[in-house]
Nucleic acid binder design. Structure first.
Lengths: 230, 230
DNA sequence: GTAAAAATGGGCCGCCCGGTCCACTTAATC
DNA sequence: GATTAAGTGGACCGGGCGGCCCATTTTTAC
């Protein structure tokens, strides 16, 4: 908030070195974008973000010239949480339990934030910090998979690509169901885990399927919103 | 093609009773929409369809006042194929084999036509014929599930909602991978079948996962196209 | 308090979209 | 071949979006 301009060294924190009001607006923009992206996904227009933040379009454009810049800034700390999830899983004394917990946690993140679901199934070559986090998480994920396989609970035919596929599939479910059937993703993850697991592996119970009426509501909602919009 | 106007009774076939050139344009519109929807999903604008068909926007609007009308007309016969898939599965002397074949066939349809993938995860209350087909297929699907469970190969905890979830998940995979990794959906279906199947059930071998480079290409493509667009 | 610099946002531009209207073209009928 | 009605598509309108410029306001520094 009150950062005297004397303590700013060039190329330090992003957003530091701005004038006080500029920094305040920057935060307002980030908060608005976070809200909109979480609710509607990355399809939200820049103009909408500016409106929601209560700033002019020009201000938004000046602070974040490209959409990727805004996305990168918004999902920076969430990406930290994403990377942290692997670390937590690696710290689990039971690698198989850590592995299942990890998949559950990541898919839960997708369900909680539609924008993040999009982010996880895309890549943003321009956003270096974001991609660094992702690469870092990926490396640790490979280690997690190896350890889980060594327990004998994770099947040998599982590959790290399966994680990406799960994220894509889960993004589809989360997008399609929205808040009309918000727990559907748990069922998907449950099924996938059952396929990943070796025959004798301990797996969490398969979550209940959503009520048919809820799924139907989701399908109607989709047709009203239009595909790919929200 | 050459239908004399004398043989048209009111409320007969949709599109019959039109003047010859009007009917020709109608076909051109349907062909164009089929092409665009298959390639890019239902997000395609009406204006684009008109352009692709080489007709004016007014012509398109007159023939298909609402987008639902166009969608319904385009996917009428594909919906027939969808309904037929259940019938074929029911005709299979081995219900379990019929069941797995059905899921595979339906998911393949989604992969072959992005628009159809959207259609299967939505509902169009306005399009009576389409919804009738869907309901009809659903009824037979319930029968198929019952028979498959009776073989003991399909787990008891499987529900018909799982089919919808699979379609939503598959739509996500198909949308995310596009033509960058076009066979990814097979892996997803393979995993899901493994979870649906009772321990001793015969299941098709798990298809190979796509190459990591292909998945990466898909993710890059997504970020360039934008979420929900194509 | 004042002057300089930084930041702002409203306005303008071109573009695409969906919807509607109407003068013109074309096919069907005799 | 002429008449008539069906059909057409270009034009126009209102609206949103992305990008840019510049007069105005606000903060900072003195």
């Amino acid at each position: 908030m009150t950062s005297p301009p004397s303590d700013q060294t060039p190329g330090q924190q992003p957003g530091t070195g701005l004038r006080a009001d500029a920094e305040r607006n920057r935060c307002r923009i980030l908060a608005a974008a976070r809200r909109l992206y979480a609710a509607e996904g990355l399809g939200v227009s820049m103009a909408s973000v500016a409106r929601e933040a209560g700033v002019g379009k020009a201000t938004l454009s000046r602070r974040f010239p490209a959409k990727d810049d805004l996305v990168a800034a918004v999902f920076a700390e969430r990406m930290d949480a994403y990377a942290a999830a692997v670390t937590i899983a690696l710290d689990d004394p039971d690698p198989w339990h850590g592995f299942t917990g990890y998949l559950h946690a990541v898919c839960a993140m997708q369900a909680a934030d539609r924008g993040f679901a999009d982010v996880l199934t895309m890549t943003f070559p321009a956003a270096k910090a974001l991609e660094a986090r992702r690469a870092e998480a990926y490396d640790r994920l490979l280690e997690l998979i190896t350890r889980a396989k060594n327990t004998g609970h994770l099947r040998d035919d599982f590959t790290h690509q399966d994680v990406v596929i799960l994220l894509m599939a889960n993004a589809g479910v989360v997008t399609a169901t929205g808040d009309a059937a918000p727990d559907t993703w748990r069922r998907l993850v449950g099924h996938m885990l059952r396929s990943y697991a070796a025959p004798d592996a301990p797996i969490p119970a398969l979550p209940e399927a959503p009520r048919p009426a809820a799924l139907y509501r989701a399908m109607v909602r989709l047709s009203r919103t239009g595909p790919g919009t929200a």
